[in-house]
Amino acid sequence: MRVVRYAEADLPAGPARQVAELEAAAWPGAEPGHDPALAPRALLLLTADGTVAASLALLFKEIRLAGRTYRAAGLSAVVTRSTLRGRGCGARLVAAARAELAADPAVDLALFSCDRPLAPFYEAAGFPVLPGTVLVGGTPGQPLATDAPGFDKVVVAAFFTDEPARDRAAFTGARVPLYPGNTDRLW
């Protein structure tokens, strides 16, 4: 298997169709694709015959917190083909995403939310939980927070700055104004 990367707008038709099918099976009724303002990139894990085994999207935006502006990335729509689950495909792809973000000088941190039961999966890939942190998504006029009633979310992050301990402390226990818009309300 191999990992391939595309700007979402440049994703070839065959893999794009497979990603849409995987996402529709995982999240019925959700609209495919991401807000172009978030510069979405698709990461795919392909089998030898070109089948999409797993996919995810990387989304990007600046976040202002604690008097600083951070260049943030988030993982979104992480999904593995149901017939290949339990074989490490998702773990391999998430680890590749972390490595790609860590090597990108335009990214200060990776920050996203996940369902609480998935936290150990993301922690194993190098995204520790930020205790007490809440992401506030949506828009300032229509916010959607990870601590909203009915959500059981945690926030995970990896810091790639010169002072990761300082920056982790700034984000720990904070309400982070993510505001990615109405398409990707929480990434």
Rank of each mutant, 00 (worst) to 15 (best):
V3W: 00
E8T: 12
E8H: 13
D10L: 09
P15Q: 09
R17F: 14
Q18D: 12
A20Q: 14
A24P: 10
G29M: 04
E31H: 13
P32W: 06
H34F: 14
A53S: 12
L59A: 11
E62Y: 00
I63S: 05
R64V: 13
R64T: 11
L65P: 01
Y70M: 04
R71F: 05
R71T: 04
S76C: 08
S76P: 01
T80I: 04
T80F: 11
R81F: 08
R85Q: 14
G90V: 11
G90Y: 03
R92T: 13
A95T: 02
A96H: 03
A102W: 04
P105K: 03
A106M: 09
V107N: 03
D108M: 05
D108R: 07
A110I: 05
C114S: 10
R116D: 15
P117C: 12
P117A: 08
P120M: 00
Y122Q: 02
L130A: 04
T133R: 12
T139P: 09
P140R: 08
L144S: 04
L144Q: 07
A145E: 01
P149A: 08
V155F: 03
A157V: 01
A157W: 02
A158Q: 00
R166C: 00
R168S: 12
A169N: 00
A169L: 06
A169T: 06
G173L: 09
R175C: 04
P177Q: 12
P177I: 01
P177M: 04
L178M: 10
P180D: 01
N182P: 07
R185L: 06
